[in-house]
Design a binder for these strands. Structure first.
Lengths: 157, 157
DNA sequence: TCGTAATCTCTCGACGATCGAGATTATCGA
DNA sequence: TCGATAATCTCGATCGTCGAGAGATTACGA
């Protein structure tokens, strides 16, 4: 068997990384006068845009786990400071599609894009084989975590 | 140069891992009728206990980044459901030291300890050399993240 | 020793984020 | 056209957080 202490320490390193990564989002929120949920929402909208999709209010609510009443308030906040724009979906006029403003997109790209740049730059110091090991590790650990979350999930209706 | 797309994907995997790990804490919170901050606080108290320290109200406030008024409310909540106990520090009677109840300790150990067990078990599938690579990766990426957070930190008074 | 400043926690009132219930508007199938 | 369904919004209530300040204890210089 391997060194159990070493493996446990790796688990702690994983947790520490998540804490610090959370802090990055927190900084962005503070710097722009937003709260945690607002940032999550902007990230969700950016991710959707990256996939070529336009997020609706309902989809955003699912992404950030908020009820419709809270989504309305959330989008109100983001719209008020000019980070998103509301517009009715032409095909289904019940839906409200959300689009990020260029300024918000730029701010997000600068903050998180900068981090992504630094991270990938730091990965220059690894061989392709090493990165493959890391990838396998991240995927497997994520799977374990997801499985754990599912196992403790409240029973569906 | 390595494959830039691959490295960027690794960065996304890191973020996904943090999201899922966050969800684990969220599940624990829901299952025990707590909110995010309460869980963070319990984790902080457990970590301190693991280091052999007894957390005071003030220290807890620093750990979870809350003002004293909020810490009072936080500890009130945790004490009401029997997760922590308040007691005056014998050496400095201004201070309030916090101790986790055995039941809360057990609940936390079952939830998070179970995850830690699953994670370390999944690490059995790696050679010591591979784990060393992973460790270096996690440490270096965390350093980059911390540095990024510091760089965007609001200027100190 | 005394008095003042510093430290730690708590109380109070206010604000903001979230939610549940229900209203409103739009779409779809019969 | 009409009823059922869907997407979003409005309203009132609840809860977590904060700022300001009070109360209690300790540290320290005169």
């Amino acid at each position: 068997m391997g060194d159990a202490g070493e493996r446990q320490e790796l688990a702690l390193l994983l947790r520490r990384l998540t804490v610090e990564l959370d802090a990055v989002g927190q900084r962005f929120a503070q710097a722009h006068g937003l709260n945690r949920t607002d940032v999550r929402a902007l990230v969700a909208i950016m991710d959707a845009a990256r996939r070529g999709e336009a997020l609706t209010a309902g989809r955003l609510g699912e992404a950030v786990e908020l009820r419709s009443a809270s989504v309305t308030a959330l989008v109100d906040r983001l719209e008020k400071v000019g980070h998103v724009r509301r517009s009715r979906d032409a095909e289904d006029r019940r839906r409200v599609v959300l689009e990020m403003s260029d300024s918000a997109m730029a701010a997000g790209a600068e903050h998180f894009g900068g981090l992504a740049r630094d991270l990938t730059a730091a990965m220059e110091g690894y061989t392709p084989e090493e990165l493959a090991v890391v990838r396998r590790f991240l995927v497997e650990m994520t799977d374990v975590i997801v499985e754990h979350a599912r196992a403790t999930e409240p029973p569906e209706a």
